[in-house]
Each structure stands twice: as C-alpha cells, then as structure tokens.
C-alpha cells in the first residue's frame, strides 16, 4: 500500500510539473494554433535564472525560503520577458504566413535557446540547491512525501486556481477566450489581439519558469537540455487533455504523470519515456481531440 501511495505521490509531482508547462502549450495553441516548440527552453531558462539568483542570494546570506521566493519570482519575470520577446521576433512576423513557417520558427527558437544557454553557461550538469526547507509534519505520514513534492503540488494547485479565476472572470480572461475563438471578431469589439497574444506568452512562460525552478530543486541538477524532454512530455499531456483546453491540459498532465510513475513502478522503469509516447499514439488513434478537447470545428 505504501508502495502504491509513493508512486501515486511521485505521479502527482510529475503531473504538477507537466501541468505548469502544458498550460503554456495549450494556451498558446488555443490562441494562435502554434505548437511553441521553444516552450521547454523557457522552463530551462527559468531554472538557470533561479540557479544564478540562488547562488548570489545565498552568498548574501538570505534564508532558504526567501531565496526560493525571490528566485522563483525573478525567474518567472525573466522567462516571461523571454517569452514575450520570442513571440515578437519569432512568431509575430510569420503569423499570417503558412503554418509551417511558424513551426519552423519555433523549432529554430528552441535550438537557438538551448545552444545559447550551453555557450553562455555550460554543457555540464550543474548542481541545483535544495531551496525547499523540510516540513516536519510530512515525516509523520506513513508513506514518503518530500517537502519538495509537497511544495510542488501545492504551488501548482494555487497557480491553477488563480489562472482559472483569471480566465473565467476577468476582463482580460474574457478577451483571451474571445480571441481564441475568433480573432477578427475580437478585434471588431475593440480587443487589442496583439496584446492578448503577448499576454498569453507572458503567462505561459511565467508558469513554465515556476515549474522549472520547482522541479530543479527537487531533482537537484540542471543543464541546458532539461527543457527538451520536459517540453515534449508536457506537449503530450496537452494533446492528451485536448490541446487548447486548460482543464484538459491539467487532466492530461496528471494522467501522464501517474501513467509514468505507475508504469515505471509496476512494469519497468526502463520504459518510462515509452509510456508517454504510447499514450500519445493511443489518444491520436482513439480520440484525436483529446480527453476534454472540443471536436475539430474549423472556422470559416
């Protein structure tokens, strides 16, 4: 039973991180129908930013919690700036061209950012400090939940709730949903669609960076390549849930997280990555619109 619960918790942790990343994929796709292949790199850049900050701040003698909060916030802002800039220079100019152009631009952006970080930093793994303090009450549980796992899950839940409220109830949220359904009509009502798109990139990048910081302090090491696999997994999660759908991305992420950890725990950990792609293939065959996706209804 404890073994099961352990796997459950580890799946929940993975799922949380995938969800923080998948949100960006699904929101960007929802609004400009682009698979932003460079999204994983934003997550990686978030982790690097936090690493640099954490080093500086710990020299300055701050306590772990302050470092975690400051490093996360700065990483989110910094990554958001990257996301914003990326949209402006790599996607906006090709927005009205063929879809392939944007896709190629996204792949180019991904390679560029990976190699930029490799050159500017290093190609080796760097140790990432454990920023998350120990919580005593977790030790009383019969199964193992680390503090990092706990923080990851709680943070993700809070982010999801805030984002849901933003999208459902605010003026900005309504304009985002409107633009994702019909951009021209949104413009005819006075919505500045360029700004809505920029904002989508900013939000998606900030949550991805948060995911990057949290997972790095859980795994304890990072390199320039961590965004690649995480990005692909989160993309699978977004497709699984129904790309374009925010609740779908969250659901898809947890389903994927649990599939991976139970698969690894009960079948074989050698095939961990295979499960993700097996799921992707299955969903593409049996329900291409994803678990919560809307059936394809092309606009005229």
């Amino acid at each position: 039973m404890n073994y099961f619960l352990g796997l459950f918790v580890s799946g929940l942790t993975r799922g949380s991180i995938y969800a923080l990343l998948a949100l960006g994929y699904t929101m960007v796709y929802g609004i400009i129908e682009l698979i932003n292949f460079a999204h994983g790199e934003i997550y990686m850049i978030g982790a690097f930013t936090a690493l640099i900050l954490a080093s500086v701040l710990s020299i300055a003698g701050l306590d772990a919690i302050s470092i975690l909060v400051i490093a996360s916030l700065v990483a989110m802002i910094y990554s958001a700036a990257y996301g914003f800039t990326m949209e402006k220079i790599a996607y906006k100019p090709v927005r009205n061209s063929q879809r392939l152009s944007a896709l190629i631009s996204a792949i180019g952006m991904s390679l560029f950012l990976q190699n930029y970080v490799r050159l500017a930093q290093t190609s080796n793994f760097l140790p990432f400090p454990t920023l998350i303090p120990r919580f005593g009450f977790l030790q009383q549980l019969t199964f193992q939940v680390t503090s990092a796992q706990f923080v990851i899950f709680v943070t993700t839940t809070v982010v999801m709730i805030l984002l849901t409220l933003l999208i459902k109830f605010t003026r900005i949220g309504k304009s985002m949903r409107a633009a994702s359904q019909d951009k021209t009509m949104a413009m005819l009502l006075g919505v500045n669609v360029n700004r809505v798109i920029a904002l989508t990139f900013i939000i998606g990048s900030a949550t991805a960076a948060l995911g990057g910081v949290l997972i790095s302090s859980f795994t304890g090491q990072i390199n320039f390549y961590i965004g690649f696999m995480a990005g692909i997994k989160a993309f699978v999660a977004a497709v699984l849930g129904g790309i374009g759908s925010i609740p779908g991305a969250v659901l898809g992420s947890f389903v994927l997280g649990w599939t991976e950890s139970f698969g690894a725990g009960y079948i074989s950990s050698d095939y961990e990555d295979v499960f993700a792609f097996a799921i992707l293939v299955l969903i593409l065959i049996f329900k291409p619109s994803g678990l919560l996706g809307r059936p394809e209804n092309k606009k005229v």
């Binding site: 309504k174 949903r177 409107a178 359904q181 019909d182 009502l189 809307r294």
Partner: peptide, 12 residues
C-alpha cells in the same frame, strides 16, 4: 463567440 455565454458575449 460560441463557447462564451450570452452574457459574456455582451460583456465583450
């Protein structure tokens, strides 16, 4: 907007 409510369409 098909997935927005009547009220939300009006809000926009």
């Amino acid at each position: 907007f098909p997935y927005l409510t009547v009220q939300e369409n009006l809000d926009l």
